[in-house]
């Protein structure tokens, strides 16, 4: 026995040591890549946002908050910021409201569940640029089927993507179409996680109407799902880029300029790296603020300990 004891002590020590070195060996590639490709560049971006650097310029100067000061007075940036926020404020509640409705409808019966789920989910996996092109055809002012349909009921044609009054409306509609399936699938997952016995209990407790059961069981138990969906959808909306790049390029007259597209134009068309970096920082701050609100403030109200 003494031999066994004497042996086991150092063995354990080497095992732990071996475990630690193996761990470092396993983490190293990912760790290096994480610094080189994500954390490092993100820090560089933050630094660049305080510089006046333009691509190709031999020198750069540190100009403090000048880029941000310029953003504050730049009407294009104001348009981009307000359009992005409008887009979030319209597309997020609309896709969540409609998505919850569709999910409840799909879940409330047994017929064609998988079919409808697939149909509503289709836009999520479709190449958005290509589908935007299809939308462009649908919404074409002269030959588009949408205007032709409207003409049949006597409504004058609308220049959906070409007029500054309608362009955000059109982009928001496409945005809802694009995000709806995502929301539906998340809500469906949330709904199936609600124990069936709770509905049975609600019915025996006297919750006669579907609305009573929704208020007593469905809505409170969907709380965590809803919060998650709100955050994710808001971030997806904040990132709106593809439809703008493919359909309007921010036009007409900056009426559909959004944050990421403006950042793209300033950085990669005009090569104003410093200015573009400042826009990216604003974008990042909004994203972080959203996540902070989710984790710090709201999380506690929807999780029942």
């Amino acid at each position: 026995m003494p031999e066994a004891l004497a042996l086991s002590a150092p063995r354990r020590a080497t095992a732990v040591l071996g475990e630690a070195s193996a761990a470092w060996f396993l983490v190293a590639p990912a760790g290096i890549a994480l610094f080189l490709l994500l954390l490092g560049p993100s820090a560089a971006l933050l630094a660049l946002s305080f510089s006046d650097w333009e691509l190709g310029a031999p020198t750069l100067a540190w100009i403090g908050f000048e880029n941000y000061a310029e953003l504050a007075t730049d009407p294009v940036f104001r348009a981009a910021l307000s359009n992005t926020l409008v887009y979030v404020r319209v597309v997020m509640p609309a896709s969540i409201g409609l998505g919850l409705g569709v999910a409840l409808l799909i879940e409330s019966g047994t017929r064609l569940r998988a079919f409808f789920r697939a149909v509503y989910f289709l836009p999520v996996v479709s190449l958005l640029v290509a589908m935007a092109t299809a939308w462009q055809y649908l919404l074409h002012p002269t030959i588009g089927p949408v205007n032709k349909l409207l003409a049949m009921v006597g409504i004058a044609p609308v220049n959906w993507l070409g007029s500054s009054d309608w362009v955000m409306v059109s982009l928001c509609m496409i945005g809802v179409w694009e995000n709806l399936g995502f929301v539906v699938v998340l809500f469906l997952a949330g709904l199936t996680a609600i124990p069936a016995d709770l509905y049975a209990a609600a019915e025996t407790d006297g919750a006669r109407s579907g609305l009573d059961r929704f208020r007593l069981v469905t809505w409170p138990l969907l709380g965590p799902t809803t919060l998650f969906v709100v955050t994710i959808t808001a971030i997806r909306c904040l990132r709106v880029f593809d439809t703008v790049a493919a359909l309007t390029r921010g036009g007409p007259n900056n009426a559909s300029e959004v944050l990421l597209h403006m950042m793209y134009r300033e950085g990669f068309s005009y090569f104003r790296i410093g200015y573009s970096a400042a826009i990216t920082v604003v974008f990042l701050v909004i994203v972080l603020a959203l996540m902070l609100v989710q984790t710090r403030l709201l999380d506690r109200q929807v999780h029942y300990g």
Binding site: P195, D197, L198, A200, A201, T204, V217, L221, G223, Y304
Partner: peptide, 13 residues
């Protein structure tokens, strides 16, 4: 009627 369920089915919220 009043029912008691196997897994209690209490409203968690």
């Amino acid at each position: 009627i009043a029912m008691v369920f196997q897994n209690y089915a209490l409203y968690p919220h």
